[in-house]
Computed example of a mutant assay.
Amino acid sequence: MVGPAHAAAIEEARRLGAAGWKVNGAGGSGGSLTLVAGSSATSATAPALARALGALDAGWTVLELAPSRVGVVVEELPMR
Rank of each mutant, 00 (worst) to 15 (best):
residue 31 G to S: 14
residue 10 I to S: 09
residue 1 M to E: 08
residue 71 G to T: 00
residue 69 R to K: 12
residue 73 V to W: 00
residue 39 S to F: 03
residue 64 E to H: 11
residue 29 S to V: 10
residue 19 A to T: 00
residue 32 S to F: 11
residue 20 G to K: 04
residue 42 T to S: 03
residue 21 W to E: 10
residue 17 G to K: 01
residue 59 G to F: 06
residue 34 T to D: 13
residue 74 V to A: 06
residue 74 V to R: 10
residue 2 V to P: 09
residue 78 P to Y: 03
residue 46 A to H: 03
residue 49 L to Q: 01
residue 17 G to S: 06
residue 63 L to C: 08
residue 55 A to N: 15
residue 33 L to P: 02
residue 31 G to R: 03
residue 45 T to K: 12
residue 20 G to A: 08
residue 39 S to L: 09
residue 4 P to I: 10
residue 54 G to A: 13
residue 31 G to Y: 02
residue 66 A to C: 05
residue 54 G to T: 07
residue 10 I to C: 13
residue 56 L to G: 07
residue 73 V to M: 01
residue 70 V to K: 09
residue 56 L to F: 05
residue 32 S to A: 13
residue 41 A to I: 11
residue 8 A to H: 11
residue 36 V to E: 06
residue 36 V to Y: 04
residue 11 E to P: 12
residue 38 G to I: 01
residue 78 P to Q: 04
residue 42 T to C: 00
residue 30 G to Q: 04
residue 54 G to R: 04
residue 42 T to N: 00
residue 64 E to F: 05
residue 46 A to G: 15
residue 20 G to V: 05
residue 14 R to T: 10
residue 62 V to K: 14
residue 58 A to R: 07
residue 45 T to H: 05
residue 28 G to M: 02
residue 11 E to Y: 11
residue 65 L to V: 10
residue 12 E to D: 15
residue 76 E to Q: 14
residue 76 E to S: 15
residue 13 A to K: 01
residue 8 A to T: 14
residue 76 E to W: 14
residue 65 L to E: 11
residue 74 V to F: 07
residue 68 S to K: 00
residue 43 S to A: 06
residue 61 T to L: 07
residue 49 L to Y: 03
residue 40 S to T: 09
residue 5 A to S: 12
residue 20 G to I: 06
residue 27 G to M: 01
residue 5 A to H: 08
residue 73 V to T: 05
residue 9 A to I: 09
residue 57 D to L: 05
residue 8 A to D: 07
residue 2 V to D: 15
residue 38 G to K: 00
residue 49 L to N: 01
residue 2 V to Q: 09
residue 47 P to H: 07
residue 18 A to G: 08
residue 70 V to G: 02
residue 56 L to N: 12
residue 64 E to A: 06
residue 69 R to T: 05
residue 36 V to P: 01
